[in-house]
């Protein structure tokens, strides 16, 4: 009976999780909010456009986005951010500047008009008696896979452990001989790559143009503020906030729905006692 609402809630949460993941990782390790996150989403969307131009499979866009986003992230960390970590407020300016540079470069090359990108999946399937978008279901699956992969990376690999150490106590990590500079570099590349990947993943749902990143950046920012640096919290936050948005939009209206994430985020932050 409530199948549609249930599907809407979980798939919306999945999409939000995918979009916020890169931002959370950068925030956790580097302690900065990467305001260029939206620009990396845009980069990923244009990777899908390029794949269409080259007549490659739409799925190849995911690889292009991950690699391309990580590469741009590498240059940005190396040339812009590296010396700014000691001045956290300046990183806000620097990453927002980076956002403008990336978005304007894309605008210069592609123009402001919307671009066409081929979608791999456009059909709908029958789930529990209702017809539902297959692609949204696939995104839910991808969100789960990405969550598990990142969790494994953080808990089961050397780089992940090192990153955890840096998150918990950076000074101590340095004292133990960890090259925090390299950790930051790798983390930022990973965050940028994941953001671009997310951009390529949402492309079949949205139109591709240079400013598509902004609304997603705002939602991702809210989620990360609420979730802190925990992957589990992020999933929970995506489910609660995204779910509330869908339900308020469905039973109320979308204008109220779009306020829901922000209002809930503020309430949660007010009563959350553990600061991470």
């Amino acid at each position: 009976m409530y199948t549609i609402e249930l599907l809407d809630v979980v798939t919306t949460a999945g999409i939000l999780y995918i979009v916020a993941l890169g931002l959370l990782i950068v925030y956790g390790v580097l302690k900065i909010i990467n305001l260029a996150h939206g620009a990396f989403l845009v980069l990923g969307s244009y990777a899908a456009v390029i794949a269409t131009w080259l007549d490659w499979s739409p799925w190849s866009a995911l690889v292009i986005a991950l690699v391309g986003g990580a590469a741009v992230g590498a240059v940005a960390e190396w040339r812009v951010l590296r010396d700014l970590y000691v001045r956290p407020l300046d990183t806000i300016l620097a990453t927002w500047g980076l956002n403008i540079i990336i978005v304007q470069s894309i605008t210069l090359y592609f123009g402001r008009e919307i671009q066409f990108a081929e979608s791999g999946v456009t059909q709908a399937v029958s789930v529990g008696g209702v017809t539902y978008s297959l692609y949204r279901l696939i995104l839910l699956l991808i969100a789960a896979v990405l969550g598990v992969l990142v969790w494994l990376l953080m808990r089961r690999t050397q780089i992940g452990i090192v990153a955890q150490a840096v998150i918990m106590n950076e000074e101590l990590a340095q004292a133990l001989g960890i090259n925090t500079r390299l950790v930051r570099f790798v983390t930022f590349c990973l965050g940028a790559g994941l953001a671009s990947l997310a951009g390529a993943l949402i492309t079949p749902l949205v139109s591709v143009h240079p400013n598509l990143g902004v609304p997603w950046l705002i939602n991702a920012f809210m989620l990360v503020m609420v979730a802190g640096v925990s992957l589990g919290n992020l999933a929970l936050a995506a489910l609660i906030l995204g779910g509330a948005q869908v339900l308020v939009s469905s039973y109320g209206n979308p204008v109220l729905g779009s306020l829901t994430i922000i209002i809930l985020a503020v309430i949660i932050l007010r009563f959350r006692t553990i600061t991470t």
């Binding site: 809407d8 949205v206 729905g257």
Partner: peptide, 8 residues
């Protein structure tokens, strides 16, 4: 600003 039309 909202590009997700799911609820509608």
């Amino acid at each position: 600003q909202q590009s997700d039309w799911t609820a509608i």
